[in-house]
Every structure is written in C-alpha cells, then in structure tokens.
Design a protein around this nucleic acid. Structure first.
Length: 714
DNA sequence: ACGGGTTCCACC
DNA sequence: TGGTGGAAC
C-alpha cells in the first residue's frame, strides 16, 4: 500500500495525461480508414473472436466493453472494427504501443518533471513552469486564451449555467482575485492544453488530462471528462468531488482493500471514510495504510511525481489457458526460449538506447495439477543474476523453471496423496528483467581501466558490452535431489513429462512486428479513400534474428547455445528517442483539438502514400502452420541435466553497479581527465533533467503578442 | 476455456 | 533479501 507521507509544500501543480483508448488510437493511426469508426483492439482472435483490450469511444456507445470477446462485441455492434494486436513468436507483442507511448513521453518531458506511470499515462509536475508563468505572464494579463484551454472543465463551476461556452472558464482562469493556488492551477490548465495540442500535432493522439494539486486528484480528474478533454480541480472543489465518490473509484481501493473497507466498516463512499479517525483506520489496516486512508479521504496525498521516463523492468509472459496448457517439458522449454528471445531484444534496445543494464532475471510460472480436485499449485518465482545474450537468458530461465518445479514436486512428494495419478500442466510462463541501472559509463575507458585491474577474468567472453556474463543462476541445490527426481519418474513427474498429448500448443510466428512509422509519418495527409494498400509488409528479411536452434529438440540445446555464445544477439532498430528529428510541421496553428482531424482530411499526396504503412496485419495470414512440435521423450533426461548444473559460485563476482545519484562529485576531480570527461557525460542527463524544468519559458508560447491560434514551431 | 500482458508496490 | 500478493491499465 502507498506510504503515507506528509503533504509537501503544497500548491504543487500536477497533471495526469491519459491517452484515450490508446491501443485503438495507435491502430487508427496505422490505418486511418478506421478513424471515426467503432473500433476495438483484440488479442488472439481464434477463440471467440479474441479478448478486447481497448475500445474506441464510438464502440462504447454500443455497450461494448472490456472483458468482452470479439464475438460478443460483434453482436452488440456488428460494424465494429476489430484490430488484432501484433503477434510475434506466438505471443502478443506490445512493442508498437510501448513505442507509441514513448513518443508521447518524449513530448511531455520537455516540460516539467515527468513520470511514465503506465504505457498510456504520464504524470507531470508542472509546479515550476506554472510558477514561472504566473510571475512572467499570468493568465489575467493574457489577452487571448487558447480555445482548448477554455474548454477545460473547472470542478465547482456550474457548467449548466455556462451558456456561452468557455466564458465561465475564462473568467475563472483569469480572475485577478483568485488565490495563489487557483492561479497556479489556471497556469497549469493553459500549459496542459498546449501540451495536449502539441501531442496531437506530433503524434496524432488525443488524450485527456486532470490538473490538480496532487497526483491522486489529478488522476481522478483526468477520468471525469473523456475523451480529449481536461479537468481542473481547485482546492475548493475537492470535498464536493470526493465525498460522494464510491470508495472503489479511488486508486488502490478498487480491490480487496476497498472491499474490506466496505464490508468491515460499512464504508461505501469517501464521505463515509471521513467519519473514521486515523487511529481507528490504523487499527484495522496498519499504521501506514491507516494514515494513508485518512489522508486520501481529505484529498491529501504527498505522492511525488517521480521523474522517470523509462520502465523499471521488462517482462514478457504468456498464459496458456485451458486446453493450451503446456503438458511437456519440451514445450515449456520452447516457450521459455521464445519469451527470452523477446526479452533479450528489449534488453538490448534498452542497453543501446538508454545505456541501462538489467541485473536480475526472474521467472514466474503457474502450474495446475490435474486429476485431483485440488488444482492450482503454487509455483515459486525464482530469480538469478541476469546474463545478457539470448542463449544465456534461455539457459538461465530454464534452470530457474526447473528449480522451481523441483521445489513444487518435492513438496508434493511429501504430500501423502498425489502420488499415483496426477499430471502437471503449465498455464502461465513469464520472464522479467529487473534491477535496471545506468550502465557505468557508456564508453570504454572506465571499463578498460577496471578490466585491466581485474584479477580473474577467465575468458574473453566474460563480458558482453561490459556486462558480466558468467554469473550462474542459483536454484537447484545438488544432485541428490536431482536423483530423487529421477527416481520419481514413475510418479507425478513422470506423468507430467511423459504426457504425449501436445495438441494444444501454438505454433510460433516466424515474423515479428516492428513499429517503423511513428513520428515520421507525422502529418502526412491521408485520405481514407486512398487505396490504403495491401499492407502485407513482410520484414523478415531485414531482421537479423538470432538463429536459435528451434527449440525443444534435444537435451544438447544448452550446450549448443553455449558454443554459440555471444553470436546471437540481434539488434533491434528502434524508433525511440527520435523525438527531435521530426520534420517541421507545416500544420497551421493550433486549432482546438476537435477540429484537428477535419483539418487533416486533405487529399493524399501521392508520394507519401508510397510509404508502406507497415501495418503488417499479421492476423490476416494467421498462419496455421502447425509447427514441428515433435517432442520426444528425451526431456526426461533433460530435467535431470538441467537441475545438475545449478548453483555455483554465483556471488563471487563483484559487479560495480553505480547509481549516479550516489556519486560524490568531488571525487571526480581526482580522476584522470579522460575519465573525468566520461563521468561528466554520464552524469549529464541528471543535470539536464533539472535544467529542462527551466526550459524555454512558457511565456514564449503564450506571449500576448500572439493572437489567436499561434503558429509556433519552435 | 480464460481479459492477457505488464508494471509497480507493500509487505514479510 | 527474495519472494509473494495485490492492484492497475
């Protein structure tokens, strides 16, 4: 639960920017002919039309909602356009959306501290910019307020009464007798409106926003008026907003805590919560949560915007529902390979683009025991030091899986029953990489310096991109256990391993998807009538995919992988961090967001359309190739082999992972000049982040000199 | 036979 | 810690 912190210096200006049905927008940008149509994004369409994960507002009018299947959606809305999430290696591939989210973050981060809260949500701390604006160019002095700003919803104002649209808002925004707090929020509203238009211009995505004095309130506000609108929460409106609010609507209270609040204390609205003393709440839910509850009921939240643009971990996983449950070790291995392959690519991109290194590999699985009534079994998640390179990841992930499996089976063995007739199936697998730190100096001299002083570099392959490659996953203890497992073949594990029914497994896609358009397609005139192409756009040839031994063949895979170590890393060209290189927009001015798309509907200019829109609709070819999943019985041996090699000197090596924030800068001066320079470069992003807050004053954007729709392409 | 795939967090 | 459980999008 969130930590209860005291309110920091109040009168912060916090915004939450929330992309409207984001995946849908991403797909509509790829296929503009979908714009304006009821549209939903589904993943996997073979079973009941796939699961809906994003629904356009047009489609919501028909009652289509999440947790529906494509088929149900079709019933409610026969003309709904269902777009499939790209699939790579047999699983959903979200890179397209991740990259699109990065585009947005890159824009927002130009103003104020910025926290990427999820793939489609960004918090902004605009306190500094708002203060600067208030002192240099306050709203009350502005002769023109942008139309989008005027469309803000100001909580507490009676919009019914606002006959002339925007006049009430204008008055509120420009009041000269407003409190300092309100004036800052007004500045925030202006800034956010501008940012939202900027996002639209540069990405074609609309978003909604909440502007308030803390994250919690901003978050609540952002969802009050969607899509493509913004809502301001003046302090005076907080109580009126919160009191009637069902407690479950509060972030963090949508689950068990919210339920128990209701069932234990009879609390159903935030107003109800107000009646309980802090002590009482602490009695029930502990000091932290108690205090936190007491605070949020009053709209108090000291939660700070973190200033983090990049994710803290990378993970990928897949569920294997029902009949798809994995029944053989070979299929588990095969899927782990695929998952690791994807993870490896993402790690490599992160390394290339952000100079960050992940240090921990974690594997999670869910297994079911069939036959018995008692089905779900706890599978312990396992982690180990992360080694870069696809084969290493694959090898280690498999070891982690085996180690977890063995634990489960050991416990099971101690169990009285469960002996004779039980089989295991795996219903979920995931691997993730965490503990991501800035790579100590992106360049070489420091590494060289330390390496030359390294005592026991056993092989030249010890490092890959400066990252230790030799740490060994922990987990399996010893051979005794392994042999016990071996001896156990006749029982549970044997059934599991020997199970020959493998029908359920999916074949893997051989192609995978990449986002190649993104920002660069900015503002191409598109016309829905343009034969927007047979967009079967196969990129296989461009990709230097590692030629992984197609998996599950035999127990020597690990050894083969070993032999190829270091040679299989594929490089993913990425579109991130391209924000600065876009072409100038020729777009006229910043009309309100509503008008934006109309303005776009211009005849298509032929040359632009030649660009393949890369929409790579893989789902059309939904290859039915049944992949060769001829696993033999060899895996019996495998499980033992794998359990063998675990657990060696994993903690021997020191990895000097440094956190820039922890550096005593006075030390730097004592280093050789070359190294000094590098360290300073390395530290620079931090400094720049600070400097960015001062950035070009918003006064530049909103100077009175400009009238009406500005044409600022700075 | 299912909202799937992620990500983050507090707690022990 | 590492691992678990919960919550959110």
């Amino acid at each position: 639960m969130p930590v209860a912190r005291p309110e920091p210096s109040d009168a912060r200006v916090i915004a939450l920017i929330d992309m409207d049905c984001f995946y849908v927008q991403v797909e509509q940008r790829r296929q503009p002919q979908l714009r304006g149509l009821p549209t939903a994004v589904v993943q996997y369409n073979s079973w009941k039309g796939g699961g809906l994960i994003a629904i356009s507002y047009e489609a919501r009018k028909y009652g289509v909602n999440r947790s529906m299947r494509g088929d149900e959606a079709k019933k409610l809305c026969p003309e709904i356009q269902l777009v499939q999430v790209p699939v790579a290696r047999g699983k959903a591939d979200l890179n397209l959306y991740r990259n699109a989210g990065s585009e947005v973050v890159a824009i927002l981060a130009r103003k104020g501290r910025c926290e990427r809260a999820s793939i489609d949500e960004v918090y902004l701390d605009l306190t500094d910019v708002a203060e600067a604006m208030l002192s240099e160019n306050p709203p009350e002095k502005l002769e023109a307020i942008d139309e989008e700003t005027l469309k803000s919803h100001i909580l507490g104002l009676d919009e019914e009464v606002d006959k002339q649209k925007g006049e009430l808002a204008r008055e509120w925004l420009c009041r000269s007798n407003a409190s300092q707090q309100d004036k800052l929020l007004a500045c925030g509203a202006i800034i956010v409106a501008e940012l939202r238009m900027q996002v639209l211009r540069e990405t074609e995505f609309t978003c909604s926003a909440g502007i308030a004095h803390n994250k919690m309130l901003a978050k609540l506000a952002s969802s009050m008026n969607k899509p493509s609108q913004q809502t301001v929460v003046p302090s005076s409106a907080v109580k009126g907003m919160l009191d009637p609010l069902p407690i479950k609507k509060m972030k963090q209270l949508g689950g068990k805590l919210g339920s128990s609040l209701q069932s234990d204390l009879g609390i159903s609205t935030v107003g109800d919560l107000l009646k309980f003393s802090e002590e009482k709440l602490q009695e029930h839910y502990g000091t932290n949560t108690g205090t936190w509850l007491w605070n949020i009921a009053r709209g108090i939240s000291g939660d700070e915007v973190e200033g983090r643009l990049l994710p803290k971990s990378h993970g990928c996983g897949k569920n294997f529902a029902g009949p798809q449950a994995l029944k053989t070790l070979a299929s588990v291995e095969s899927w782990l390979k695929d998952l690791c392959e994807e993870l490896s690519e993402r790690l490599q991109s992160d390394l290339d683009q952000n100079k960050r290194v992940a240090h921990t590999l974690t594997l999670h699985a869910t297994i079911y025991k069939t036959n018995d009534t008692d089905q779900l079994k706890k599978f312990p998640s396992k982690s180990c030091p992360l080694r870069y390179g696809t084969p290493k990841l694959q090898e280690d992930a498999l070891k982690l899986f085996n180690s977890g499996l063995r634990e489960v089976l050991d416990l099971q063995r101690a169990d009285i029953q469960g002996t004779s007739k039980s089989a295991w199936v795996v219903t979920h697998l995931s691997v993730s990489a965490g503990k991501i730190l800035a790579k100590p100096s992106g360049t070489h001299s420091i590494l060289r310096f330390f390496h030359s002083h390294e005592s026991s570099s056993s092989s030249k392959e010890q490092t890959y991109n400066g990252i230790d490659q030799n740490s060994v996953p922990s987990g399996g203890e010893n051979q005794v256990v392994v042999n016990e497992v071996e001896a156990n073949k006749k029982t549970t594990i044997n059934n599991y391993v020997n199970s020959s029914s493998i029908q359920g497994e999916q074949q893997k896609e051989t192609s995978y998807h990449k986002d190649t358009n993104s920002i660069l397609r900015f503002f191409h005139n598109r016309d829905p009538s343009c034969p927007s192409q047979e967009q079967t756009y196969n990129e296989i040839s461009q990709n230097s995919m590692p030629s992984v031994p197609s998996g599950s063949e035999n127990q020597m895979a690990a050894d083969q992988a070993e032999a190829k170590k270091g040679t299989m890393i594929s490089h993913v060209k990425s579109n991130l961090a391209r924000g600065e290189t876009q072409k100038e927009t020729t777009q006229k001015g910043s009309g309100p967001i509503l008008r934006f798309f109309q303005a776009q509907r211009a005849p298509c200019t032929s040359s632009e359309n030649a660009v393949p829109s890369t929409s790579g609709t893989e789902h059309e070819q939904e290859s039915d190739r049944v992949s060769a999943h001829e696993e033999s019985q060899k895996e019996k041996v495998e499980i033992n082999d794998n359990m063998n090699s675990l657990h060696h000197d994993e903690h021997r090596r020191k990895r000097w992972s440094l956190n820039p924030e922890e550096i005593d800068t006075s030390v730097i001066d004592e280093l050789p000049p070359e190294i000094q320079r590098e360290i300073r470069v390395w530290l620079q992003p931090i400094k720049r982040a600070k400097a960015a807050q001062r950035g070009p004053s918003i006064a530049d954007y909103f100077s009175p000199a400009k009238k009406g729709p500005q044409s600022h392409n700075s």
